[in-house]
């Protein structure tokens, strides 16, 4: 199936496209927190339960039946990238049960297997997290940026100048973002916005000053803004201290999945959850720890307009 690839010139021309025209939320951004106590059977994650949580999250986000939502958002013309987060290995990466539940819904919406790419920074990260690499085109593909390479062009906004993953830029026309809810030793926390560091060639350059404004600037790059359709945050296991690597002593089974179209609203809520958990466990706030995630507010400002961090404009729905 032919995919209409955007030309680099076309991307440059469309750089000012406002986020509101490419997302699907209403004036108020919704963040759905779907939780199920039966999501675990011992050490295993119950995939049926995950599927129900995902469907419930989508239905509450769009106020429509899940299958209808998927059919509206995606079609057989799409190539969809599923950007997972596999830095922390098998015990603390995006659960495959979430990914496969989305793959199933995409297939029902008419997206061919070969038009779905599960992707992260490196093949090694994916393998460590238990994902099976798949580069052939007759199945759901799964590989890292090191397999696909990066654009020659440098994409710039504000403080950043980066080459983009060819997976994001050339191979997909839509992306579903799968961050993991966790603390981050430099940026304060990592959620939907920071997960796109895995789509650029030089994230190591952008960890100064708690990632502010770099994380916001990366999310302002046109291909990321245009292609990002949905965010599902894996909070089956979450972590409030010691991230990004897995630190079991500071993690907890939240048994939740967060869903949003607005990555800023999602990150604001993730921040709230982490702060609450830190306080509960006697840890100082992220601000006191010198790593307040100020990049969230920056992503919401007039220069970025990636979403809203205003609690009054965020509708949190717990299901």
């Amino acid at each position: 199936m032919a995919l209409s690839l955007p030309s680099e010139w076309a991307c440059a021309e469309a750089d000012d496209m406002p986020r509101s025209s490419i997302t699907h939320g209403a004036a108020k951004s919704s963040v759905i927190i779907a939780t199920r106590s039966d999501v675990r059977s011992g050490k295993m994650v119950n995939s049926d339960s995950v599927q129900k949580m995902m469907d419930s999250a989508v239905e509450n986000l769009f106020r429509q039946k899940a299958r209808r939502v998927w059919g509206t958002l995606f079609s057989s013309n799409d190539t969809v990238g599923l950007k997972v987060n596999c830095l922390a290995g098998k015990l603390f990466s995006t659960h495959q049960e979430m990914v496969w539940s989305v793959v199933e819904r995409l297939r029902e919406a008419g997206v061919e297997k070969s038009q779905i790419i599960v992707w992260d920074r490196r093949n090694l990260d994916l393998e460590r997290a238990g994902y099976k690499l798949q580069t052939r085109s007759n199945d759901v593909r799964c590989y890292g940026n090191d397999h696909a390479g990066f654009t020659r062009r440098i994409f710039e906004y504000g403080s950043v100048g980066s080459q983009l993953s060819n997976i994001l830029y050339q191979q997909c026309n839509k992306v579903i973002n799968f961050p993991v809810l966790k603390d981050h030793g430099i940026a304060g926390m990592t959620g939907a916005l920071k997960n796109y560091f895995g789509a650029i060639n030089n994230p190591n350059k952008y960890h100064l000053d708690c990632g502010d404004p770099y994380i916001a600037d990366i999310n302002r790059l046109y291909p990321i803004r245009k292609k990002s359709v949905l965010n599902f945050c894996d909070a089956l296991t979450a972590q409030y201290e010691g991230g990004p690597p897995f630190m079991p002593q500071w993690s907890w089974h939240m048994n939740s999945i967060l869903a949003a179209t607005d990555p800023v609203a999602m990150d604001q809520i993730i921040w709230d959850i982490i702060e609450e958990k830190r306080e509960e466990n006697g840890f100082e706030s992220l601000e006191a720890a010198g790593r307040k995630p100020t990049y969230i507010a920056t992503a919401a400002d007039q220069n970025h307009q990636c979403g809203t961090n205003d609690h009054e404009k965020i509708n949190v729905v717990k299901v």
């Binding site: 830095l87 922390a88 290995g89 030793g185 430099i186 030089n202 190591n204 350059k205 960890h207 100064l208 010691g242 991230g243 990004p244 690597p245 630190m247």
Partner: peptide, 24 residues
């Protein structure tokens, strides 16, 4: 907690497990 501090250049990057310094 498996962190390290690099003393090679003036940045003195403090780096979490599985992360890289500014140099990449």
């Amino acid at each position: 907690n498996r962190k390290i501090r690099c003393n090679l250049c003036p940045r003195e990057c403090v780096i979490d497990d599985l992360e890289r310094g500014y140099c990449g």
